[in-house]
Amino acid sequence: MTEESTLLIVDGANVVGSVPDGWWRDRRGAAKRLRDRLAGYAAGGPGALPGVPGPLEIVLVVEGAARGTGSVPGVRVEEAPGSGDDLIAALAAAARGRPCVVVTADRGLRARVLAAGARVIGPRTVHGPSRRP
Rank of each mutant, 00 (worst) to 15 (best):
E3C: 00
S5N: 03
L7S: 03
L7R: 06
L8G: 00
L8H: 01
L8T: 04
I9F: 00
G12V: 05
N14A: 03
V16Y: 00
S18F: 01
V19A: 13
P20K: 06
P20R: 11
W23M: 04
W23F: 15
W24K: 12
R25C: 02
R25E: 12
D26Q: 09
R27P: 00
R28G: 05
G29K: 05
A30T: 01
A31M: 12
K32D: 09
K32V: 15
L34V: 08
R35M: 11
D36V: 13
R37D: 08
R37Y: 05
R37F: 07
Y41V: 05
Y41M: 11
G44H: 14
G44S: 10
G45V: 10
P46V: 11
P46Q: 15
A48I: 12
A48M: 14
P50G: 10
P50K: 14
P53K: 13
P55T: 12
P55K: 06
E57V: 11
V59T: 10
L60E: 02
L60K: 02
V62K: 02
V62I: 10
V62M: 07
G64D: 13
G64V: 01
G64E: 08
R67I: 02
R67N: 05
G68C: 04
G68P: 09
G68M: 08
G68Y: 04
T69S: 06
G70Q: 09
G70M: 10
S71M: 08
S71D: 12
S71P: 04
V72F: 11
V72D: 13
G74T: 07
V75K: 07
R76A: 13
E78F: 03
A80G: 08
P81N: 07
G82A: 14
S83I: 08
G84I: 08
G84N: 05
D85T: 13
D85L: 14
D85Y: 02
I88S: 04
I88V: 10
L91N: 07
A93L: 12
A95V: 02
A95R: 00
A95M: 03
A95K: 04
R98S: 04
R98F: 00
P99E: 09
C100H: 03
C100D: 07
C100Q: 05
C100V: 13
A105S: 15
D106M: 08
R107Y: 03
G108K: 07
R110K: 15
A111R: 15
A111N: 11
A111Y: 01
R112L: 09
V113K: 05
V113C: 06
L114A: 10
A115F: 01
A116R: 06
G117F: 10
A118Y: 00
R119N: 03
R119H: 08
R119S: 11
G122D: 14
G122P: 03
R124H: 12
T125R: 15
V126Q: 11
H127I: 10
H127Y: 11
S130G: 06
R131L: 14
R132P: 03
